[in-house]
């Protein structure tokens, strides 16, 4: 039922359209971190027609605000934050080429519709597994908005970063489907 894939960023339309909700994906390559404040700035730049701090085409964005790294570490603990706070910004980024988002928790209908229309994937990473997930991050570099601290945009080099497909390009939602399988209705 569920397939496992190893994909390298940037993601192509072919990469994302073969994925189905529930599939497990190990991502490698470059991904970019952004939370609420950074998303607001990215969308402002798009609206003004200005250049973004990283190329959006095929990009994967990770919703994370890591802990400060200890000396010698590329990054601190780095698990996903709750994604709905990015819902009002994500469709615009998807429309401009974003192919993947990594977070945790539900997305709204506009995001799911954008994933379907413009072919993008919402991946879930395991929330609260920040120590484990940080091991898949080999390099980290702040590339924009350093003043935002944990909310700055970081360029991450990842190797086999483990995620699960929550919303695919066909309108499927793992949260809804998974829950239906185990829900016990009252008699």
């Amino acid at each position: 039922m569920s397939n496992t894939y190893h994909l390298t960023t940037p993601l192509s339309e072919e990469d994302v359209t073969k994925l189905k909700a529930g599939d497990i994906v190990y991502l490698s390559g470059t991904i970019y971190t952004a939370r609420d404040a950074a998303h607001k700035r990215l969308v402002d730049l798009i609206e003004k027609g200005e250049e973004l701090p990283f190329p959006l085409e095929g990009a994967v964005v990770y919703f994370v605000g890591p802990t400060p790294p200890k000396p010698g570490e590329p990054i601190g603990s780095a698990g996903p934050t709750t994604s709905y706070r990015m819902d009002s910004y994500s469709p615009i980024l998807i429309k401009h080429g974003l192919k993947g988002m990594i977070g945790k928790g539900k997305r709204n209908q506009e995001v799911k519709d954008a994933c379907k229309e413009y072919k993008a994937i919402y991946f879930g990473a395991t929330g609260g597994a920040g120590a484990l997930l940080s091991k898949a991050i080999k390099k980290a570099e702040v590339i924009a908005y350093e003043e935002l601290g944990p909310e700055a945009i970081r360029k991450l080099e990842v190797e086999n970063f483990p995620v699960t497909v929550i919303n695919d390009t066909y309108g499927n939602d793992l949260y809804e489907e998974g829950r239906k399988l185990y829900e016990k209705k009252e008699d």
Binding site: V64, T67, S77, T126, G128, A131, L132
Partner: peptide
Amino acid sequence: QLLENAEIAKTEKKPLCQDT
């Protein structure tokens, strides 16, 4: 994964979650 995370956090003294 959560149990593995707890083990890594303890041995490597790394925060269990980035939201401390």
